[in-house]
Design a protein around this nucleic acid. Sequence first.
RNA 1: GCGCUCGUAGCUCAGUUGGAUAGAGCACCAGGCUUCGAACCUGGGGGUCGCACGUUCGAGUCGUGCCGGGCGCGCCA
Length: 554
Amino acid sequence: MREEVQGILLRAVERVVREVDAGQLDQLPTLQLGSPKLPEHGDFASNAALGLAGPLRIPPREVAERIVRAIEDPEGLLDRVEIAGPGFVNFFLAQTRWHEVLTRVLRDAEQYGRSNAGGGEPTLVEFVSANPTGPLTIGHGRNAILGDCIARLLEATGSKVTREYYFNNAGRQMRILAESLRARYLQTLGESADLPEEGYQGSYLVETARDLVGEQSDSLRDAEWPVFQQAAEKAIFANIRSTLDRLGIRFDVFFNENSLYEGGLVEQALEDLRSAERVYEQDGAVWLRSTDAGFERDRVLVKSSGEPTYLLPDIAYHREKLRRGFQRLVDVLGADHLEQFPYVRAATAHLGFDADRIEAVYYQWVNLRRGSEVVKMSTRSGSFVTVDEVLDEVDVDVFRYFMVDRRADTHLDFDLALAHERSERNPVYKIQYAHARLCSIERLATERGATFPPPEEVPAQRLSLPEEIELIKSVGRFPEVVLRAARTREPYDVARYLLDLATEFHTYISDGRRHRVLADDPELQAARLALVRGIRIVLANGLGLLRIQAPERM
RNA sequence: GCGCUCGUAGCUCAGUUGGAUAGAGCACCAGGCUUCGAACCUGGGGGUCGCACGUUCGAGUCGUGCCGGGCGCGCCA
């Protein structure tokens, strides 16, 4: 619909430019066709006249008049075109065009909103990627939901998505974890043992230790730490996977950082950077020459001790992902990666890949509150709130919605007190309730013997009230919303849209006198039932994109 | 000290990438269930869009400088 109006506008503008300026105006300002907030400003609005006024040296309103005169609309798409304000050109579509939109919604049904814009592009979405040192915290929860929703959005718009979890089960952190478990194990056996300095104090290790005693009794009393590492890792990973399960998230690949070392890929990445002359040695360390690429400073890749920093395997990993054939990499990262990631991207590009194919979605920290009290989180000190704990108290749907109820780049205040109380204030209920209400109307209609004609035979022209046309317009925007949310990697946009649509429906249906669906007039009833079904389809599809239930009854 | 990010109603946040009269939820006040679901709806009060310059037909949105919160950084994973 938008494209068609855009075409009409473009042709009109070209005609005006040609007649005024004999064609030397080679660069037309890009034409935007906005959706005005106020209905009296039409269905689409163009500011083309304001943009052209300067270059053409004609007052904006006169340009607008010329554009309107030059408009050709052989197919009768438009009802009328008006000039308003400083020179906006407002397009009013013929009502029958909106009726066709409803027909399309009904015809496409569960496919409505999906597209093939991505053209089957192999895309890897990497998210969560928590190391197995403890249960998933609420911060990981935000990552998990964001990543999963982004993956779903990309799938819905035609990308071929792989979900990947990257983790590291080596190094100092795991050693400390193992020592911590050993201490808990000995404690469980009744011996005195202290947690190591900086040990993991979370109670989850106590439980793991208890299980270990149950399985192995005291046979591990003198075991070396790797035994405990294995046990800890196994237990924690099982826990993480069960949490992901509760969230409804499934990964295609769990990628272990170790395999990069084992396959020599880290070494190879360093060598290749060396041959590309992107590194140098100084003070016994190997540095990435990043100031050349516009960065503030160079970064260390290999410390003077010979150990690589985090940066190097990260570079090797991203290169490997591209080598595996993915055309696009999307990483979901916490704000603590804001500084690091650009180097990964730049360095991977130095190895011969297009940096534009590598992108990160950053999300800001989750601030935990219990009422007005702020809860500080740290996995090591054991003061954190896990996803599991929250899921014990609140519905998964609420949790998922909560996590996308704010833009990723703003801090998210998660109030546990609010989450623990049954939280009827949560907007997700409003959306689900709208869906249940719509189902209920259709159910009742069926009970009363109403029939649903095929989409093409719906007497949609009977929907003539302004609020009904507005509802169809809202439903008609859905594919654009999905596409935009997928492109900006912002599931929030979908959540927001659904809430607006639900509210619009509630308002409509609350006025039972004017908007009675089941009425004596069978034609009007059929038309309104079609509208009801159209809204229901969109709410269900939208909730599906966020992997939130669309209940038929509540 | 440097970088990134945010600052909009009492609180939590939107604001369609520079458009027309800045919106919603919560909270507060006043209303609405004999008819398709009141987990909903209607109305009301509440704003120096952090501050100041600048860019232009037009700025909450872009630029610069301050102020304030968050995150990160000076061979630590």
